[in-house]
Design a protein around this nucleic acid. Sequence first.
DNA 1: CTAAATTTTTAGACTAGCCTAAAAATATTT
DNA 2: AAATATTTTTAGGCTAGTCTAAAAATTTAG
Lengths: 220, 220
Amino acid sequence: MYSTTEENYLKTIYKLQIQLGTFINTNAIADGVNTKAASVTDMMKKLSEKKLLSYEKYKGVQLTEKGKKVAIETLRKHRLWETFLHNQLGFTWDAVHDIAEQLEHIQSNELVEKLDAFLGFPTHDPHGDPIPGRNGVIKESNFILLSVLQKGEKGIISGVVNHSSLFLQHLEKNKLTLGKTIAINEVSSFDLSVKAILDGKEKIQLSNEVVKNILIKKLI
Amino acid sequence: MYSTTEENYLKTIYKLQIQLGTFINTNAIADGVNTKAASVTDMMKKLSEKKLLSYEKYKGVQLTEKGKKVAIETLRKHRLWETFLHNQLGFTWDAVHDIAEQLEHIQSNELVEKLDAFLGFPTHDPHGDPIPGRNGVIKESNFILLSVLQKGEKGIISGVVNHSSLFLQHLEKNKLTLGKTIAINEVSSFDLSVKAILDGKEKIQLSNEVVKNILIKKLI
DNA sequence: CTAAATTTTTAGACTAGCCTAAAAATATTT
DNA sequence: AAATATTTTTAGGCTAGTCTAAAAATTTAG
Ligand SMILES: [Mn+2]
Ligand SMILES: [Mn+2]
Ligand SMILES: [Mn+2]
Ligand SMILES: [Mn+2]
C-alpha cells in the first residue's frame, strides 16, 4: 500500500508529534529520516496529496487520522518484531532495532496478527515501549524517570529514554535490564550521581547521565 | 549489500540455470522477474559490471561463483522464512511464498543464523524443497514423481513440482500433505488417473494432472 | 524596526529501475 | 539462400527518491 520510505516518514512525524506537539518542522523530519530538508519538502507535498498529512508552506506539518493510522501500524509492527527478535531469537536489546527497522515494512496483515498471537499478545517491546493494539490504541505507560526518585525510594526498571546501542549496551553490561529493582541509597548533591541497591543485593553507583535515561515503575 | 531487485534477478537466474542448463536467455529472465526484456538487458549490464554474472550480447547469461553465492543465500533465507511461517505461525503452505518473497531480502546474517537455529536447522521447506546450508551446499533430494509409481507400489509425499496456490490449496483440501503415504491400487490406461490408498486408510482417486505434480520418496 | 541569521522552498540534476517503440541480430522457414 | 519470424538490444522517456546551490520566507537580534 505505502512504500518503505513513506512509512518511515509517517512514523518519524508521528513520534515527533508525540514529543513536540502538533506542528512539525521540516528540519526535525529531515533529521529523523536521515535526509535533507529539500527532500522532506518534496515528500511533504506527496504525502499531503495523498491526504496522509496536512501541509502548509513554511507552517509545518500535521498527520491526518489516515496518516496517524499508518504510522501507528508501522510502529506496532516494529515493536512486535523487536519483541520476536529479543524473546524468541535471543537478540540483545541493543541489536533488535536495526533489524526491526527493515521488518516493519513487510506487508501482510495476517502476518502481523499471527506474530502478535505467537508472541502471546505482548504489551511492551524489549525497551519498555508500549506496543499499539490491533485497533491502533496505545496504552501509554506512566513510568517515571529514575532521576526523580529520592533517597529511600525504589522502583522497577521498565524502560529507557535513550535508545542508542551505546547506552543499551552500557546498561546490559551493568545488569541494568528491564524488571530489575533499584532502591536509592543516596543522591550526590555534587554531581547528582546515585548510590543504589540492585535487586536487593548488589551495591551500585550510577551517573546522572544514566539515571535520567532510565524509566521506572515506582514501588509503593 | 545488494538490492531487493538484484537479489530477485540472481535468484531467478539461479533457478533457471538448475532446470535449463547454463546459458539463460533474456526472455526467460524477464518472465521470471516479471518485467520486460529491455529492462533485463539493462540489469544484465549492471550485474555483469559487478561480476555477479557473465554476459555477452545475444549469447545469454551465466552466474559467476559470486553471483551463485548471493542467489543461494537468498534462496536459503526464502525457505527458512517459509518454514518459520508454516511451522511456527501456522500459515498454510499456499500462503507462505508471497510473504517469504519479502522476508528473504531482510539483511542480517545474524538473523538468518538465529532463525535457522530457532527452527531446529530444518532441511526442507513446507513444499519439500531443500534448504541450503550456511555453507551454501544444497542436498538435492532424490524424490521421484508420483506418476512413475506402478500398481502395488507406495511412497511418502515429499514435495511438489507445481508451486501455485491453486494446486497447493487443492492438495490441502484433499489431505495430500507432506508426510502422507500413498499406495497405488490402479492406474487407468484411459486417462492415467490413479486409484490409491491414503495413509493405509482412505480410498482416493487422483487425476494425472495431480500425480505428475507430486514428488514422493518411494517405500521399499 | 531594520539587519542578520536561520529555516524552508525552489530549481535543476542525479541514480535505480522500469517502460515503449524502433533497430539490430539471430533463428527458422520456405 | 532468401525471406520471415523471433529475440535481443538500443534509444529515449518516466517515476520515486535523493542531492546541492540558490532564492524566498521567517525568526531573532541589535
Ligand atoms: Mn526500535
Ligand atoms: Mn523499541
Ligand atoms: Mn516459495
Ligand atoms: Mn518453498
